[in-house]
């Protein structure tokens, strides 16, 4: 049993990390009332920038390369997401449509530039990705140590810490209260002197940074290069985690962990005794099916922020 857990848990954490980051981005954006179907595109952008920067600067930066790559990916994706902010906040575009356009644009730009710079459809493999490590001291604890702290990616823990930070920011600070209020009732927030547009811009840009973080972490831990098929659906899965987690940072984290767990099961399921008999297809579609069930109210009611998806027009009732 312990062996089984020891093979599942690190892989589940490993697959979850990018989903957690991206889902947190989704929570920020949607809590402010801006639907973000573009999470997939933000991840694509993050993965692309993370890989390209890593390849270009590995000789200069050495061991720090993956960390700096991830930061650069966050910045670029944040800037990129401001397109979504401009379209959906200022230009009152349909937010779903704008998100779809973000997805198209990120993939188009990524593959176009890859062909432009590398002369082929995919980049080279990075030589300095993130590696799994043993966490000092904690790894030596019996039972828990081998399960949770040996051969683990630091990014997985950063993701969990980020979720707690996001929860604190959204629920324990004035900034978070304002952000949530413009997503629930923008007119009331406006009356109280909160600038709805600014808050929504900030929220979308935060979601861009976190989506970029998720994408680059995925690229630098799992994919290791960039091509058309690096990010296929992880962004949408993160979106599912946002909803399955009821638009709450910790809920989204839990959902992302579960989806990562389901993914890892379909990867290593054959090696696990009681799962070997379950056809792989059930494990593959489980996250999506569960999201539908959650939305339909079979697993607790999922209520979206009230003003989610509606552009705020000053002065309208």
């Amino acid at each position: 049993m312990l062996d089984v857990l020891q093979s599942i848990i690190p892989i589940a954490l490993f697959y979850s990390a990018p989903l957690i980051f991206t889902a947190l981005g989704g929570v920020f954006s949607e809590r402010s009332g801006v639907v973000n179907i573009g999470l997939e595109g933000l991840m694509v952008m993050g993965a692309f920038v993370g890989i390209v920067f890593n390849l270009a600067f590995v000789d200069v930066l050495g061991a720090a390369t993956p960390w700096v790559s991830v930061l650069v990916a966050m910045v670029v994706s944040a800037v990129f997401s401001s397109i979504h902010a401009v379209a959906s906040v200022s230009f009152r575009a349909d937010q779903v449509v704008s998100g779809v356009a973000i997805n198209f644009l990120a993939l188009g730009l990524g593959v176009f530039l890859t062909k432009q710079w590398y002369g082929k459809g995919q980049t080279d493999m990075v030589s300095r990705p993130f590696y799994s490590t043993d966490i000092p001291f904690l790894a030596d604890i019996p039972i828990i140590g081998p399960l949770l702290f040996q051969k683990i990616y630091l990014t997985s823990y950063i993701a969990i810490i980020a979720a707690i930070v996001a929860w604190y920011v959204l629920y324990k600070t004035p900034f978070g209260l304002r952000l949530r209020s413009v997503g629930e009732h923008p007119m009331a927030a406006d009356t109280n002197g909160i600038n709805v547009y600014t808050m929504r811009y900030i929220a979308v840009i935060i979601s861009g940074a976190l989506g970029g973080l998720g994408g680059s972490v995925f690229a630098l831990t799992i994919a290791l290069n960039f091509s058309q098929s690096t990010i296929v659906g992880q962004g949408f899965m993160s979106l599912a985690a946002v909803i399955f987690g009821k638009w709450h940072p910790l809920g989204a984290m839990g959902a992302a962990l579960f989806f990562g767990f389901a993914q890892s099961l379909s990867v290593i399921g054959a090696g696990v005794p009681f799962l070997a008999d379950v056809p792989k297809i059930y494990l593959t579609i489980a996250p999506y099916l569960l999201t539908i069930l959650a939305l339909a109210g079979f697993i607790g009611r999922a209520e979206a922020p009230k003003a989610n998806g509606q552009p705020y027009i000053k002065g309208s009732r």
């Binding site: 397109i83 198209f104 188009g108």
Partner: peptide, 22 residues
């Protein structure tokens, strides 16, 4: 020219149509 240029053009067209208000 890489063929993906067209993907970028299509994405931008969607943006412009979506932002018809402006």
């Amino acid at each position: 020219v890489p063929a993906e240029l067209v993907e970028i053009v299509i994405a931008l067209i969607i943006f412009f149509v979506a932002s018809s208000y402006i």
